[in-house]
Design a binder for these strands. Structure first.
Lengths: 105, 105
DNA sequence: ACCCATGTTCGACAATCGTCGAACAAGCTC
DNA sequence: GAGCTTGTTCGACGATTGTCGAACATGGGT
């Protein structure tokens, strides 16, 4: 199985931003940001597994996640260091605010 | 003329990111980041004025820009302070890298 | 008043996107 | 091997998006 995982630096800025500009994917990133690896099935955010698979693909191909294959499972983790190196502050800035708006400050 | 300019804090994160996830709009933001006001017509990035108007509307409704009407012209500026306050580091992170990828580091 | 300049709005169009169910692939367990 | 689990891929669909030309609105300038 070919896992397409480009270097983050080779991904256009707009593709990185587009990958983050989706509620489901942001929830995934938010979960991944806790650290560690998660099996794909971990992410139950009210979408079918086809859709989940699609979103994980988008994140992976945007250079945001790394995927390790183990048996029938795949373990996903955030490429935090590279992200922080190329886009310092971006992840924190994005995750600092809740997905739904309208709270104080 | 009603100018719809929401508070940045009331705009969903995904809408802010989506607004930035476009080449033309990123070029506009990049230009605006130099500081000061620019008439809409300033932004000649190979699109028609209808398209330009559309992009400026997206940026404005994402809470990223402020528009001042003066005669037949409109002057646009970046809401840098609010952006920095709510998403510290985001603008710099996004603008630090060129729109097209693939340069060293 | 007429024209010109600056922008917006209105369809229309092709392309992309998010979503799903169904089918498929691959590995584990009994 | 049969069956289950995990996850991907394949159409298909409706919705959204970026783009344009054309029409419109508005405010100068002469």
């Amino acid at each position: 199985m070919e896992l397409h995982e480009p270097e983050l630096r080779e991904v256009p800025v707009t593709a990185v931003l587009a990958a983050l500009a989706d509620d489901v994917r942001l929830q995934i990133v938010r979960a991944l940001a806790e650290g560690g690896e998660y099996a794909c099935g971990t992410f139950e955010f009210g979408v079918s597994k086809a859709t989940r698979s699609h979103h994980l693909k988008v994140l992976r191909e945007a250079g945001l996640t790394r995927t390790r294959v183990a048996g029938t499972s795949r373990y996903v983790r955030l490429r935090r260091d590279e992200l922080e190196h190329l886009y310092p502050g971006l992840l924190d800035a994005v995750l600092s605010r809740s997905t739904t708006p309208a709270e104080h400050s």
